[in-house]
Simulated assay, not measured.
Amino acid sequence: MTKHKIYTMSFASVYPHYVKKAEKKGRTKSEVDEIIRWLTGYDQEGLETQLQKETDFETFFEEAPGLNPSRTMIKGVICGVRVEDIEEPTMQEIRYLDKLIDELAKGKAMEKILRK
């Protein structure tokens, strides 16, 4: 089976779009970073290293220090698909992140986004 194109895309090439989407709605880059760190377990230095290395999405999630166990509480539709129904693990992680960024851009409180 052929890998989905997003797996080989550089995380660093999509990251500015996450930030732009958030900032357009009055949110901040630091909030985007907090979401990514919460989801993946990277610290800020680790996140910046991955961005500098232009790591692809697949590697970004494979090398994540500790995927947050609470991420399974993320529910809803992204790109017309329910995130909880995605069977391929890497795609599900990518869509979890997309969903969290969407929630941020929609003005949801960080406490709710981070499932506290």
Rank of each mutant, 00 (worst) to 15 (best):
T55D: 01
Y15N: 03
V19P: 00
L67T: 07
D98M: 08
Q52M: 06
T72S: 10
R82A: 14
E45Q: 14
G46W: 04
I35W: 01
Y18C: 12
S70T: 05
F57W: 15
Y18I: 03
L104Q: 02
M91T: 13
E54Y: 06
G80A: 11
R95C: 13
G107N: 11
L100C: 09
E23D: 11
H4K: 12
E31W: 07
E87W: 05
I101V: 15
M91V: 02
S13D: 11
I78R: 06
G46A: 06
S10R: 11
A105G: 11
I35G: 05
C79I: 03
P16F: 09
K99G: 02
G26I: 00
K106F: 13
T8I: 06
Q92P: 01
K106Q: 15
V14S: 05
F61E: 05
A105L: 00
A64F: 07
Q52Y: 00
E23M: 15
K106Y: 13
E58Y: 13
T72H: 10
K25Y: 00
L114Q: 10
K99V: 01
I94S: 04
D98V: 06
R82Y: 06
L39Y: 01
A105F: 02
P89C: 03
K116Y: 08
L67W: 10
E103M: 14
T59Q: 06
K5M: 09
K75C: 00
G46Q: 11
I86G: 03
A22S: 08
G41V: 08
L97C: 11
Y42A: 01
I6L: 10
T8K: 14
K25G: 00
G107D: 05
T8D: 13
V81N: 10
T55K: 04
T90R: 02
G107H: 10
L100H: 01
Y96S: 08
A64P: 09
R115V: 03
L39S: 02
I94W: 02
D85A: 12
D56Q: 01
G41L: 09
E63I: 02
V81S: 12
E58V: 03
M9E: 08
E31A: 07
E87L: 15
V83W: 08
T49K: 15
G26M: 03
F11A: 05
I6V: 11
Q50W: 00
G76I: 07
T40Q: 02
V32K: 10
D85C: 07
D33I: 09
L39T: 01
M110Q: 05
L47W: 04
G26T: 03
W38S: 04
V77E: 13
V19Y: 09
R115M: 13
R37A: 02
Y15A: 05
